[in-house]
Design a protein around this nucleic acid. Sequence first.
DNA 1: TGATTAGGCAACTTTTTGGTTGCATATTAG
DNA 2: CTAATATGCAACCAAAAAGTTGCCTAATCA
Lengths: 110, 110
Amino acid sequence: MQDEGADDDVFRALADPARRQLLDRLHAQDGQTLGALCAGLAMTRQAVSKHLAILEAANLVATLRDGRRKLHFLNPMPIQSIADRWIGKYRRGAVRALADLKRNLEGEGR
Amino acid sequence: MQDEGADDDVFRALADPARRQLLDRLHAQDGQTLGALCAGLAMTRQAVSKHLAILEAANLVATLRDGRRKLHFLNPMPIQSIADRWIGKYRRGAVRALADLKRNLEGEGR
DNA sequence: TGATTAGGCAACTTTTTGGTTGCATATTAG
DNA sequence: CTAATATGCAACCAAAAAGTTGCCTAATCA
């Protein structure tokens, strides 16, 4: 009851280095066009376009049409949601980890 | 200079729902065997074994041999590292986002 | 208007990934 | 020792993902 589908798109989107790089670029300068985001990437424009579509579907990037151009904006909200909901859980458990390890090693009935 | 290869394994490992589920199971009870982790999952033992291997390669799971059994322990450290190093960056940028959006929309020389 | 610029769509190829089956190995119980 | 248990290894398969090429459409500039 914690990963019922919505977060999955975000995790998947973040899995690819090229897409993380695109997010980094938008973080450095927001509102770039597709062409600007392509510059210097060893990839065709269409490949970048697909990556951006995936990021957009995951709600990590919002777009805005301006004439013949399409501006791309970073939306860090889903990342924060994951950090709060999902990573927080493991952080809380982190302190217990070593204790658990010891307890399990000792108490294992073999 | 932030994603130079090590974090990539972690991102990739977290991309699959089945692997996140395995982490959740270890979070609920640490030190389980492969067989125990398989129980109730609509997957063969070998499939689970592969997932665990990926998690282990990403350093998210540590294993310990105990006779013919293999115990699996959750290691939340890489998750925390990512949260601190990578997600933190976007969180810092979040406040600026709307301001950036407005600025870009107005100042765009077309 | 004609040429150029920015981007979209769709088919296709290649790689990667998730999963399976079958067999092998090692430890433990009787 | 023999049987059962717990896991490992390797080949194979299918589906998804990443990337390409080719063509099309819509704005803008000269």
